[in-house]
Design a protein around this nucleic acid. Structure first.
Length: 508
RNA sequence: GCCUCGCUAGCUCAACUGGCUAGAGCAACUGACUCUUAAUCAGUAGGUUCGGGGUUCGAGUCCCUGGCGGGGCACCA
């Protein structure tokens, strides 16, 4: 207790005083009749309909919330409480509450949870307010929340927060405090939930079956990435956290489940930046009898559906850009886009020339890069940042896509697309490779890359090849970065702002 | 992993070129106030300046080192 600062100490003293007065500081429940926003709305309706009482009072309500502002005036006090719906003003008056209950208000603090009961009325300045008849302490706050002060501009109604809680690191580490004092942050995560819900209902509506495949895997695959490893004690074996759902979902296609999808966390043991968190949420789906052309149509319909449902329009603002979701989206071939950027056809450009171009742009880490990798690097440098409006980029080099079918008529390429918005890759899809002999060769080529030190190259998955040998129908598959879509639709600059508890270093 | 910027009271921020006892607002505490809303007014208290080491008569400030975070690069979705 000695090492607590005065602020924490004052609250513990109030806690003791409350107990001494026979007030339970941590209640078991509270029977609310309304949320704050509903109560205000009901009052406004009654007022408009002229059904308020003669004293201008509306119906009695019970509201539970956290005290976020307090203004005491001697024998009366105003406060705001906030619940999940918003905030509402409270008016405490000594002759309404009685001496004892009014005196006990001195033991409340910002951050306390209370329940109040009383009729609604409108103050002289027009704000719908609860005239508190009785109040109950629901939970004492023993640590001050970093509330700012909210100023509402009387003319524009605009809310400005003074001081507040801005330190990025503290906000991520103590997300509970961030959520408690920043309603905007709560809104971002409400939108995130809506987006995921709309993704589900869209996939369900298209006849896809939601499935769950292993997070903990004996082999990992389906993407180029380093995995997290762990150990199963009883089995005495190394297990991997999945880097993609792909290989299991396609086993289900082999099994005859012709449309499947999964929304789940994947884990990649790589760097962290504003577009990457080590654990992130992916939507993957696989559709039998379809190819990547069909998947472009599906992606377009999915985006239109989600953006309309969540934003109410066909466009949204991200940073400096207004992104319009109007299908069909432009479809450009990777090689053509790059040729245009270089003002020279790259389809037959020798590897040495590609390398010289990349070196001229001082693109780093070119050592050991083959043709495909060079094309990819150049594309990332020259074209990707300019893909602001939704754009499909088609037909990636074969060596970069070991799970995709060869492009019809152009066997050095694959039937693959990535979809970009705001310069960010959101979707990745292929006509799925369903020839088990070709698949084995691709895995073996990956194995050679691995032997040369490419830690991200895939391993041979014999069981996956066995599944394919039973017969896999032609299939279109798509992966989507859910967090990134949420970033775009909530206009958040960092993936950490759309993940409740992003990965940070320890602070011990 | 590399480059770069940052870390000062519970919160948001000051402190010039190294120089008095590290300041302010909010929050807290004491008092006044029965329609306020960034309530107001009077007063009080609150600091390991991220940790460790060094230079100096003197370090929040300069140097070394470590930690954490932001941004960029690399890797990647």
């Amino acid at each position: 207790m000695d090492d607590l600062n005065q602020v924490l100490r004052a609250r513990r003293e109030k806690l003791a005083a409350l107990k001494a007065r026979g007030i339970e500081p941590f209640a078991y429940n509270f029977d609310c009749t309304h949320r704050a926003a509903e109560a205000s709305a009901i009052f406004e309706q009654a007022d408009a309909a002229g059904t308020l009482g003669e004293d201008g009072e509306g119906e009695a309500t019970r509201i539970g919330g956290r005290i976020v502002a307090w203004r005491s005036h001697g024998k009366s006090a105003f406060a705001h409480v906030e619940d999940a719906s918003g905030r509402i003003q409270l008016y405490f008056k000594k002759d309404m509450l009685g001496d004892e209950s009014f005196a006990d208000l001195d033991l409340l603090d910002l951050g306390d949870w209370i329940g109040v009961e009383g009729p609604l009325f409108r103050t002289r300045t027009g704000e719908v307010t609860v005239r508190v008849r009785t109040w109950t302490l629901l939970a004492k706050s023993l640590r001050p929340l970093p509330f700012g002060k909210v100023e509402t501009d009387p003319e524009t109604g605009e809310r400005r927060v003074h001081s507040g809680f801005a330190d990025t690191e503290s906000r991520y580490r103590q997300r509970y405090a961030d959520l408690a004092v920043n309603p905007d942050v709560r809104e971002v995560f409400r939108t995130r939930a809506r987006i995921i819900s709309e993704l589900r209902s869209f996939m369900d509506g298209e006849g896809f079956l939601e499935v769950e495949t292993p997070v903990l895997q004996p082999l990992y695959g389906g993407a180029s990435a380093r995995p997290f490893m762990t150990t199963h004690n009883a089995l005495e074996r190394t297990m991997f956290l999945r880097i993609a759902d792909e290989l299991y979902l396609k086993r289900l296609i082999v099994g005859g489940m012709d449309r499947v999808y999964e929304i789940s966390k994947d884990f990649r043991n790589e760097g962290i930046d504003r577009f990457h968190n080590p654990e992130f949420t992916m939507l993957e789906w696989y559709q039998a009898f379809a190819d990547y052309e069909d998947q472009m149509d599906l992606v377009e319909r999915l985006l239109v559906h989600v953006v309309r449902s969540v934003k109410g329009t066909d466009s949204f603002v991200f940073g400096d850009h207004e992104i319009a979701i109007r299908s069909p989206f432009p479809r450009i071939k990777l090689v053509d886009a790059l040729s245009e950027a270089l003002s020279e056809d790259v389809s037959d450009m020798p590897e040495g020339e590609l390398r010289r171009r990349a070196e001229k742009l001082s693109i780093p880490e070119l050592a050991g890069a083959g043709r495909g990798k060079l094309v990819d690097k150049l594309f990332g440098e020259l074209v990707e940042p300019s893909l602001i409006q939704p754009t499909f980029v088609l037909d990636h080099p074969r060596e970069l896509s070991p799970l995709a079918k060869p492009k019809r008529g152009e066997p050095r390429l694959t039937e693959r697309f990535e979809m970009y918005m705001a310069g960010v890759e959101i979707f990745n899809a292929f006509s799925e490779l369903n020839d088990p002999l070709d698949q084995r060769e691709r895995f073996e080529a990956q194995g050679r890359l691995r032997a040369e030190g490419d830690e991200e190259a895939q391993q041979v998955d014999e069981d996956y090849i066995r599944a394919m040998e039973y017969g896999m129908p032609p299939t279109g598959g798509v992966g989507m970065g859910v967090d990134r879509l949420v970033m775009l639709l909530t206009n958040q600059a960092s993936i950490r702002d759309v993940i409740l508890f992003p990965v940070l270093r320890g602070d011990e």
